[in-house]
Design a protein around this nucleic acid. Structure first.
Length: 702
DNA sequence: GTAGGGATAATG
DNA sequence: CATTATCCCTAC
């Protein structure tokens, strides 16, 4: 990666962070979440890291967690609720910045209080109690509050006039103010550049930070429209600036910002990139991908394809988590939301994994077994699971992924009849046009049996979702796939494993492995049906591995769970499921995005429609945190203060591994502390990085 | 702060 | 019980 690219990445990163804060300030949390995802995904990119980069990420992480703090089913770090993660980030911030003790305590208490309130409102009294004891200080000024909360918990009262007075929105803004007092994000270079060139209308500019930013850096970002500005033109909604003007402005600002790259090199890069994307017509003018994209990050993210760098980021919205390096998603993969689950079989040297990915383009769910060994040869076989908006049918389609992205045309439609619980399967040949579907699928793993449960959900508004679900189980003995329909009554709570099923085999291709462990609590009754696909996906014999699974489900309403197992750092939340099975398994989450990475973001709040929905769906798929938290609480209660459990393994996410690789590239092996500081790792010590590197080397991931 | 090596947790 | 990624401890 060239130096130029790093610089450009940082410019864009800065703009995104700036915009994210602005949207948070304006209460546009949806946009905040989207942009956070973008930011998050950028973390692993090579970037000209100036001191503030990590700090900005921290702020984004913090706000992202705060933003999702009222969603107990999300998680950024394994067992933690978003606000618990926020507390952890707060600690990091306090370590990195000089935060007055009093302020630290105040913010800490505010977060703890809100978390307790959220738990109480949700009826999670045990969790609320745990937080109360663990995080809520009994200082004089909070003693009364603590007592009240304790009382509500004890009486199991999830509603109380006091609770109604507490506004989550106010809390968010309070946290934002805290962040802004702590650190004013400087006005991005690109924004300044535009302003100077006369392209940026003052109104479009964020108020708060611009002034402080410039002053913070001690530079005088006065608006002195350079001559360059005169050369700018606005064509059909697109700002165009002559190269000469950009060069001139660049020259002025590069000095102030410490950019040493010659403009000519920068230009070459940009043009090259533009060409590769076959977008911009070459010319004497920069159709400012460079200026425009940054200026309107929103559009880029949600709408049309952003150009240049942005495009790449969008794809990374997902948080990838994986532990294995080789598992790094291919370029292709990185464009989708991916959930990865892996399992390791002792017999086979290579672990088996299953990648579940949501297609940004179509709301489809894609399941793909992955071989971890040879990185290059990923499995070529995939399974697309799609819900039909029109009929609640489930469609399963094997896909062969050549180099050409063309899919297979054979599909399998699985239809469950609400009246009879029958499952209908229908082979279909399909053209290439894909239709979207408005229904969601819930994939859930049964803790008791390692089954995979797939449930179509109507996205409408009615709370009564489909009651029919599918249980997919793989037969370890035969690689068969067994599909069972399940009718669920709202009252059930356990999984029913009564049925045993029959199975059928699909040509083996996708076996769903067992093993996810999750605590499940749902149940259904059911009947099972088996189906076999008539299509075949051909797969090389070896691909078959399958993997784990994962599951999850989600809440009926809006689920958002992701599987996650790992990915703690990201800003994206996941829902947890602890379900993964293998060592490396993990799930990812996607989240907000890109990164904030960890930063924040993630999915949590994205609002853009489809993508958001998709993400939400994924989240559903993941585990549910409540279960876990129950477990956790049980555990803690049982073990008491003394921790019996020495520790819980926290698998490394792909993103963390990417940071580590980038860090080693940047600082060298052995420079663990600098690496740790340069990236928004949370809950990782330099020693952890060292160990992870050791593992990665051992696995030949690096 | 880092390197090594042992211990542990999680999984087949 | 064997494996293995991750965690923990200790020496330097």
């Amino acid at each position: 990666m060239s130096e130029d690219e790093r610089i450009i990445n940082r410019w864009f990163f800065d703009v995104c962070v700036f915009k994210a804060l602005e949207s948070f300030r304006n209460g546009d949390y949806t946009f905040f979440a989207k942009i956070t995802n973008v930011v998050e995904s950028m973390v692993a990119l090579p970037m000209d890291g100036r001191g503030d980069t990590v700090l900005k990420l921290r702020c984004m992480q913090f706000l992202s967690r705060v933003n999702n703090g009222d969603k107990l089913d999300l998680t950024f770090e394994e067992p933690k609720t978003p606000l618990e993660s926020a507390l952890a980030v707060l600690e990091s911030l306090c370590r990195e910045l000089d935060v007055p003790q009093r302020e630290q305590q105040r913010v800490h208490n505010a977060i703890a209080e809100m978390l307790i309130v959220v738990c109480i409102r949700s009826g999670e009294f045990e969790k609320a109690e745990e937080i109360l004891h663990r995080h809520f200080s009994a200082a004089a000024d909070t003693a009364g509050k603590k007592k009240l909360l304790a009382s509500l918990i004890q009486r199991r009262r999830s509603s109380h006039s006091v609770l109604q007075l507490i506004s989550y929105s106010d809390f968010k803004q309070d946290m934002l103010e805290f962040i802004e007092r702590l650190y004013r994000v400087p006005e991005p270079f690109l924004t300044q550049m535009l302003k100077r060139s006369g392209h940026l209308r003052p109104s479009a500019e964020p108020t708060t930070s611009s002034s402080s930013s410039s002053s913070r850096k001690g530079r005088s970002s006065t608006q002195k429209p350079s001559a360059a500005a005169a050369a700018a033109e606005h064509h059909g909604g697109v700002w165009c600036v002559s190269l000469q003007s950009v060069r001139q402005v660049y020259g002025e600002l590069s000095e102030e910002c410490g950019v040493s790259v010659p403009f000519s090199r920068l230009l070459e890069e940009v043009e090259l990139e533009a060409q590769q994307q076959s977008q911009e017509p070459p010319g004497d003018e920069l159709n400012l991908a460079l200026s425009e994209t940054p200026m309107e990050p929103v559009e880029s993210v949600s709408g049309r394809e952003p150009r240049v760098t942005l495009r790449r980021y969008t794809g990374m919205t997902i948080s990838r988590l994986v532990t294995e390096g080789d598992s790094q998603p291919s370029e292709d993969d990185s464009q989708d939301n991916i959930t990865q689950i892996s399992g390791c079989s002792p017999l086979q040297k290579s672990p088996q994994r299953l990648v579940i990915r949501s297609d940004p383009e179509s709301d489809d769910l894609e399941v793909q077994p992955v071989r971890r060994k040879s990185t290059d040869k990923q499995c070529d076989n995939r399974l697309i699971i799609r819900s039909d908006p029109e009929s609640d049918d489930l469609e399963v389609q094997p896909v062969r992924r050549k180099s050409t992205d063309k899919q297979c045309v054979n599909r399998l439609v699985i239809h469950s009849d609400p009246e009879s619980d029958d499952l209908e399967v229908q082979p279909v040949r399909r053209k290439s046009t894909d239709k979207q579907c408005d229904n969601r699928l819930i994939i859930r793993s049964d803790p008791e049996s390692d089954d995979l449960e797939v449930q179509p959900v109507r996205r409408k508004s009615t709370d009564k979702q489909c009651v029919n679900r599918l249980i997919i189980r793989s037969d370890p003995e035969s690689d068969d796939l067994e599909v069972k329909t399940v009718r669920q009554s709202s009252t059930d709570k356990q999984c029913d494993n009564s049925s045993s099923g029959e199975s059928r085999s699909t040509p083996a291709r996708h076996s769903v492995p067992p093993s996810v462990r999750r605590s499940g609590k749902k149940t259904h009754n059911s009947r099972r049906v088996v189906v076999s696909s008539d299509e075949e996906c051909e797969d090389p014999p070896s691909d078959r591995q399958t993997a784990g699974q994962e599951p999850h489900h989600s809440s009926v309403n809006d689920p958002e769970c992701v599987l996650e197992r790992a990915a703690p750092q990201s800003s994206t939340p996941a829902r947890h499921s602890r379900a993964t099975r293998s060592n490396h398994s993990e799930s990812e989450v996607h989240s907000t995005r890109p990164q904030v990475r960890s930063s924040p973001a993630d999915s949590r709040s994205s609002s853009s429609g489809k993508r958001r929905a998709k993400r939400a769906r994924w989240q559903d798929a993941s585990g549910i945190q409540e279960d876990w938290s129950d477990e956790e609480s049980l555990f803690s209660a049982a073990s008491g203060p003394s921790r019996k459990k020495k520790y819980t393994k926290k698998l490394w996410t792909v993103q963390e591994s990417d940071w580590l690789k980038e860090g080693v590239r940047r600082f060298g092996v052995g420079r663990w502390e600098p690496i740790r500081s340069a990236f928004p790792f949370t809950g990782r010590t330099a020693c952890n990085l060292k160990d992870r590197w050791r593992t990665m080397v051992k696995l030949k991931m690096v």
